[in-house]
Structure formats: C-alpha cells, structure tokens
Design a protein around this nucleic acid. Structure first.
Lengths: 116, 116
DNA sequence: GGTATTGGTATCATCCGTGATACTGCTGAC
DNA sequence: GTCAGCAGTATCACGGATGATACCAATACC
C-alpha cells in the first residue's frame, strides 16, 4: 500500500509545501504574465497590453507577488524615473521545468477524462 | 531568450492545462484527503475523522471531484448498503510523481524565500 | 423503543480573489 | 498649456469557494 502513496510522513509540512508551489503560479494571471515576460515584454504597459482582459490592479498585484517569490526582478531606471523593467531571474528557470511538467500532465489528463 | 522561457506557443491551451492540473489537487482539502486515503482510510467517516477541521460537506464534494477526475474509485457494497469504500486508481500513481515534485519544489522554495 | 454509527444532502452565512472604475504623479510632445 | 503615455494606487462590488448547522434514511446494538 505504501508504495502507491504520495508520501506518508510529515503530512502537514508536505501539504503546506504543495500549497506554496500552487500559490506561486496559482490564480488567474500569473502564467499569462510569465508567458508575456518570456516573450520579451519588459514594461508594465507593454505586459498589460499583451494580456487581454487583465486590469492594472491585478497586473500590479501579480507582478509584486512574483517579485516577492523571486521569480522576476523589478528595476527602476534612476535616470528615467518612469521606466521600469521586469525580468526573469535565474531561479525562475528551475521552476519553469516544473511548470512545463504540470502543463504536460494537464493536457494528458484532459485527454484521459474527456476523450480516451 | 527563448531557452529560458516556460513555453512560447499555444499559450491559451497551456494555461488551461496548467489550471486543470492545479484544480485537480487545488483547494483546501484535496491533498489532505489524498493523504488520508494513502494512509489506509477507506470509509467516509474514517477519512472525515482523520482530517481535523473538515466538514462532511467539503469532504463529500472533494471526494466526488477526485472521483470525477478518476483519481479515486467509490465502491458501494450491495450487501451492506451503508458501506462505501474509497480507493486510489492506478492512474493516480502517475499524478503522485508530479505531486511529489511539487512538494519538493515547495520546500526548496520556502527555504529560498525565508532562509539564506 | 431509544441511541449510535454510516454516508451523506440542504440551507444558510462568510470570506477571499477578482472585476470595474476612478484617480494620482511624473514626463515629454505639440 | 494641454494632451498623451508610463506606472501604478484606491475604492467599491460581485461571485465562487468554503464554513456552520441542521437534517435525512438505513442498520446495529442494548
């Protein structure tokens, strides 16, 4: 029985860890934002325009959360105060691998549930 | 730039796939339930007692969703009508690997953010 | 007959994530 | 001087996920 388990010990810690992982890219806009920055968009308005339906409020919040989680950096040009650049961190690449696996599983799962 | 990207093409489909993946184990109770069943609990009240704070309503809903996603099976003993058994499917094991990676990443991430 | 157990459903209330809209301060172009 | 663009913040409203509580049918036990 144990071999088919997700994990048996330290449950609460595991659950928190999983919820952390989900939280970092959870919600409605995190992945679209990640994708947008991936595609070369660096500035706030640039990112905003590239994501249909997002509001400045949600973009602002989501960017801050991604920054808090060290997946992106926010850099203000001191010479041109209204120029801000968002960029990926090296650390984000590690997470990228996991995200891709989650995407792959989701597609596999969809086929499994709907189609066969 | 592209090599550090999550993925570039088919964005919307990817986003949906990721949201599917998150949805299947998202929410507050899915993982505690998965864990409980892993630890040998098979019956409704058994699972309920093993998860502090859960209500019958949320357990009922979550179990049905897990069943809809074919991660668990629900079997009613026709001889003893008030005896129901919940069990993992083979398919759930595939997902288990991904869940474990998400847990691992979450722990790593927590250290990264809080510590150092 | 009364009480406990199993496996739930029904009906509210509440909270949090998200949406809608308006507003700000600063800069540069016309 | 006024209008557009950049990078946001503030306030209110809504809806879906969750919580609280009550209730149900069937069986077993004393």
């Amino acid at each position: 029985m144990k071999d088919q388990c997700i994990k048996v010990q330290q449950t609460e810690e595991d659950i928190k860890a999983l919820q952390d992982t989900i939280y970092v890219i959870g919600g409605k806009w995190k992945l679209p934002i990640i994708h947008s920055i991936c595609n070369g968009n660096k500035h706030f308005k640039e990112i905003e325009r590239s994501i249909p339906g997002i509001t400045t409020r949600m973009l602002s919040r989501s960017l801050r959360e991604l920054e808090d989680n060290k997946l992106i950096t926010r850099t203000v040009d001191p010479n041109v105060p209204t120029l801000v650049e968002y960029e990926f961190t090296e650390y984000a690449k590690e997470y990228g691998v996991l995200i891709n696996e989650m995407i792959r599983w989701g597609k596999h799962h969809r086929k499994m549930i709907i189609g066969i």
